[in-house]
């Protein structure tokens, strides 16, 4: 039974080997001197469209963005399901209308809950 998964283990090994090789090739070529290496102070500074960074580069983003991203995903899923439904509306008949409205209804409950909880307000 377990031996059936041996191919997956092999696959994981190959993937890991492949990834490591890809990382090591440029390093090895740099050691030999084939890849030119001209390090400088400016080169290793963070890239900010050619400007100097003001303050810290590593800043923490507001957790609020996460709520918005999550709500956007639900909206995206609604669109993804609505589109094929709209294209095939003629063949599916009027009964599909009830199905899709109940689907939107389920999502709407989630939205209204988020709205009432104040997830859409920027604080």
């Amino acid at each position: 039974m377990l031996s059936e998964f041996s191919l997956i283990a092999l696959f994981i090994l190959i993937v890991m080997g492949f990834a490591t090789t890809l990382v090591l090739i440029p390093q090895a070529l740099k050691k030999i001197g084939i890849v030119p290496s001209k390090p400088s102070e400016v080169k290793y500074e963070p890239y900010e469209c050619g400007l100097e960074t003001i303050g810290e580069t590593w800043v923490q983003f507001k957790i609020r963005y996460y709520f918005y991203a999550l709500l956007l995903i639900t909206l995206d899923i609604t669109v993804i399901f609505l589109y094929p439904w709209a294209v095939e509306l003629k063949n599916l008949g009027s009964s599909s209308l009830g199905v899709i409205f109940s689907f939107i209804g389920i999502l709407a409950v989630g939205y209204i809950y988020a709205w009432r909880k104040g997830a859409l307000e920027w604080k």
Partner: peptide, 14 residues
């Protein structure tokens, strides 16, 4: 000009 120079300096070799 300083921005363009900086972008050039940050590009990888060659």
């Amino acid at each position: 000009a300083p921005q363009i120079k900086r972008v050039y300096e940050q590009m990888a070799e060659p």
